[in-house]
Write a protein that binds this DNA or RNA. Structure first.
Lengths: 183, 183
DNA sequence: TTACACATGTAATGAGTTACATGATTTG
DNA sequence: CAAATCATGTAACTCATTACATGTGTAA
């Protein structure tokens, strides 16, 4: 349950409309929390209802931009949330299930799919490394906030690297000749 | 949408009751796909309805074990699923949102929470390494199925290592003295 | 014979996805 | 002005979580 808090954080960084937020969720924020525009609009309405954010103009604006900004109560709610414990996200990845299934009912042609995912993860890894080179040219920054952003970015880099390693290993195994009995 | 396929895979490995599956989802399968017992019972009912698995006894069994096993149609459905492309899971982790929020509204005491998560990930990493030492004492196995299981297990090890690294980095930054203006 | 753990479920709620709808703005 | 695009929504559905309910077997 972090979408509202991801939105509050984004609005704290700077005020934005729903579509602004949607495009930010496709980029920087989306590196660690994804959300569709439908989710975002619905959640913004809830946050405004709760008095944590406000928007202009006040009249209904179908088709027109509506600018949201955070209110003091929203900032407090965010701080409160940071004080609460929360369990780590449980890993839940379909590709790993598929690898396990392939080990039993294979071969099935999962190899092409693995190659496709490998390319996607390599792309993302390259993107993250570009961002790091651009935004943190001198390595880890001294300033606290920037340093935390750098930690998160490096987390993304490690995450993608790990996928590249796993998928490379998987391809090596899948390329082996299959015993007669299998299938 | 992989719970049904995770269940089919588990039942293909060996027949089981709902509670058997629930405990397996707390261990080996849970390393890459988590599910609660409520989800499992509901999904088993659906799979049986679809004719992919069957169970004994046939009468209602509240309080008594019901043994499920996979049917040929279920095996086929699993193979079909392996042929379909599927997008990579999007990363969605609350702790990274919290780190980003902390960078702006902090300090908030998130440090203790990070330390707690660090300990959890270190534990899990140790567990995985024990499993590897026990089940794959000679390193990567030659046999295809076992080799794939080893790939997935090493993926788990890399995943937890990466969290340990990230959280260690985060603690180092959070330990820095905070400038006067923040808060 | 009661208490407890086990096994199988039901119900309510909330989060996320997919498909669709509508008004405003820009561009050929 | 017609078509494409942008921006804001609505609705229906599925998946997951939380809380609760009910029957069985076992051990104090």
């Amino acid at each position: 349950m972090s979408l509202p808090h991801a939105l509050l954080t984004a609005l704290l960084e700077r005020p934005a409309s729903g579509s602004d937020l949607a495009s930010r969720f496709d980029r920087s924020i989306g590196h660690f929390w994804h959300a569709s525009h439908q989710q975002i609009y619905r959640e913004l309405a809830r946050l405004e209802e709760a008095g944590w954010i406000e928007s202009l103009p006040e009249e209904p604006t179908r088709g027109r931009k509506r600018a949201y900004r955070i209110l003091p109560a929203g900032r407090e709610a965010l701080r409160d949330w940071l004080r609460l414990p929360e369990e780590p996200t449980v890993l839940r990845d379909a590709l790993l299930v598929r690898l396990r299934a392939e080990a039993i009912v294979g071969p099935t042609g999962l190899e092409d799919e693995i190659r496709r995912h490998l390319a996607l993860h390599q792309d993302k890894l390259a993107q993250y490394r570009e961002i790091e080179a651009r935004d943190f040219p001198g390595g880890a920054p001294a300033e606290r906030g920037a340093a935390l952003q750098h930690v998160v970015l490096r987390g993304g880099i490690r995450y993608e690297s790990q996928w590249v390693d796993l998928l490379t290993d998987a391809l090596e195994v899948l390329a082996r000749p299959v015993p007669e009995s299998a299938g």
